[in-house]
Amino acid sequence: MRPQSDLFSGSATRLVYDEAVELTVASLAEYGARHAHWCIAWSGGKDSTATLTLVLHLIETGRVPRPKSLTVYYADTRQELPPLALAAVDLMAQLARYSWIRMRVVTAPLDKRFLVYILGRGVPPPNNNTLRWCTRQIKVDPMAAAIAADLAPIDVSGLGHNGGPALDDAGMIGPDETVLMITGVRQGESAMRDRRIEMSCSKDGAECGHGWYQLALPESKGIRGRINTLAPILHWRVCHVWDWLKIYAPHPSYGGWSTSRIANAYGGDEAEELNARTGCCGCPLASKDLALVRELIDLKTWPDGWEGTEPTADTPLDAVFADGSVQPLLIGAD
Rank of each mutant, 00 (worst) to 15 (best):
Y98F: 14
E198V: 11
V123M: 00
V89H: 05
G160T: 04
L28E: 15
D289C: 04
A231H: 04
A145V: 13
L299N: 03
A87K: 12
L230Y: 09
A20H: 09
K221Y: 08
I223Q: 00
A146C: 09
I223C: 00
G332M: 02
W42F: 14
L58D: 05
L330F: 13
D168R: 00
A319Q: 05
V326C: 04
P3Q: 10
D169K: 03
R113D: 09
A271C: 07
H37Q: 05
L285Y: 01
T178P: 15
P252D: 02
V116A: 13
W306R: 12
E60T: 05
Y117R: 12
I118F: 07
L70G: 05
V89W: 02
S48C: 03
R224P: 06
G158D: 08
G255D: 10
R104Q: 07
G45H: 06
A206K: 08
D243W: 08
D90P: 01
L180R: 06
E60A: 09
P153F: 00
I297W: 15
A36N: 07
L292P: 03
L52W: 01
G188K: 07
Q187L: 01
A75C: 13
D243G: 05
I59E: 00
A96K: 13
D194V: 11
E219N: 14
W212S: 06
A333E: 14
P311N: 09
M1T: 03
R195M: 02
G256I: 05
S287E: 10
E19Q: 15
P328L: 10
V179E: 04
V140L: 12
P250C: 05
R104V: 15
V72Q: 04
R195F: 03
A166H: 01
A93E: 06
Y17W: 12
G171L: 02
G62A: 06
A286Q: 12
G184Q: 08
P303R: 15
I197A: 00
P67I: 00
A96R: 12
A271W: 12
P3R: 12
W100M: 01
G255Q: 11
R294H: 03
A108V: 04
K203E: 10
L285F: 06
L58V: 01
I101Q: 02
D194N: 13
V326H: 04
D289K: 06
E219M: 14
C208L: 12
P250S: 01
Y17R: 05
T183E: 05
